[in-house]
Nucleic acid binder design. Structure first.
Length: 112
DNA sequence: AACATGACCATTA
DNA sequence: GTAATGGCCATGT
């Protein structure tokens, strides 16, 4: 019988993060901090970013995760790619490259 | 092992 | 509005 400690260690945080990201509906975005909270890791927003950075799994809509300002956090070509995908899903960006989280932010309490 | 870096965030000035 | 600070901790050197 494995100890509780071993069991907790066996379930690393990354799969939980991926599971939450997969729940983000199409046409919506969530912040890193929000993902961390929903994954049961409050305050670990940075680890969410790292989890997505080292992401090798398929089927995870990583592009629906942006920072708390509604801005894309990637500076290189990946950022351009992320923005294009989001726009294809119907997410609108303002002139400064920011998303209105009041309109496109993922809110669980809201139906739709 | 120490150290620096990073797809972050909230608070404070 | 911007800038600095502290917290978080996985990865790479």
């Amino acid at each position: 019988m494995p100890t509780a400690m071993a069991a907790a260690r066996a379930d690393s945080a990354y799969p939980r993060i991926y599971r939450v990201v997969r729940r983000i509906p199409r046409g919506r975005v969530a912040s890193y901090g929000q993902i961390a909270i929903l994954a049961g890791l409050p305050g670990h927003a940075r680890q969410v970013g790292y989890a997505l950075h080292t992401l090798s799994e398929a089927g995870v809509p990583w592009h629906r995760v942006v920072n708390a300002k509604g801005e894309i956090s990637l500076g290189d070509d990946s950022g351009v790619r992320q923005r294009a995908i989001l726009q294809r899903e119907g997410v609108r960006f303002d002139a400064r490259g920011r998303i209105d989280l009041g309109r496109f932010g993922w809110e669980l309490a809201r139906r739709g």
